[in-house]
């Protein structure tokens, strides 16, 4: 890590991270990279997100899925926690709510490994600052 000493340095870092992320998304880095986000704010953790995070990490390792699993904050759909967002290489991200271990293994085995729709997604419908 190096110090950012100017606006140009900042731009460079932004560029690097963005291209790294988009490479991952386009799957150019590896065979198939799955991006998984687990909502880990107080609401998520209170509903058991930590355990789900651990389970996903272990299962993906176990099944040899090359997944990038990361924690995020709260999407605001606290009623449906724990929530897990999955983005497959060539698909729109899907957000699953009420994820327990059973549901998590369904997500891995059916949706991630076989691309099968398993339903029960939460429709995320807010405008962003870029819309």
């Amino acid at each position: 890590m190096y110090k950012i000493k100017s606006l140009d340095d900042l731009k460079q870092i932004r560029g690097e991270v963005q291209s790294k992320n988009s490479l991952k998304r386009n799957g150019e880095n590896t065979e198939q990279v799955v991006q998984i986000k687990v909502g880990m704010a107080t609401c998520g953790i209170a509903s058991g997100a930590k355990e789900i995070m651990k389970f996903l990490l272990e299962e993906c390792e176990h099944q040899a899925i090359d997944a990038q699993i990361k924690q995020t904050g709260c999407l605001g759909y606290c009623y449906a926690e724990p929530m897990v967002e999955v983005q497959l290489t060539d698909a729109e991200p899907i957000v699953f709510g009420y994820v327990d271990k059973k549901r998590a293994s369904e997500i891995i085995e059916k949706y991630i490994m076989q691309g099968e729709q398993i339903g029960g997604e939460i429709s995320i419908s807010f405008k962003t600052i870029n819309d």
């Binding site: 991270v17 704010a41 995020t72």
Partner: peptide, 23 residues
């Protein structure tokens, strides 16, 4: 419409790089 919550639930809050990537 998300302004204050623009990154909540989308980026990893423990990684400054992810915040930088979102301007």
């Amino acid at each position: 419409m998300r302004i204050a919550l623009r990154n909540c639930g989308l980026i990893d809050p423990e990684k400054i790089e992810e915040y930088i990537a979102e301007d």
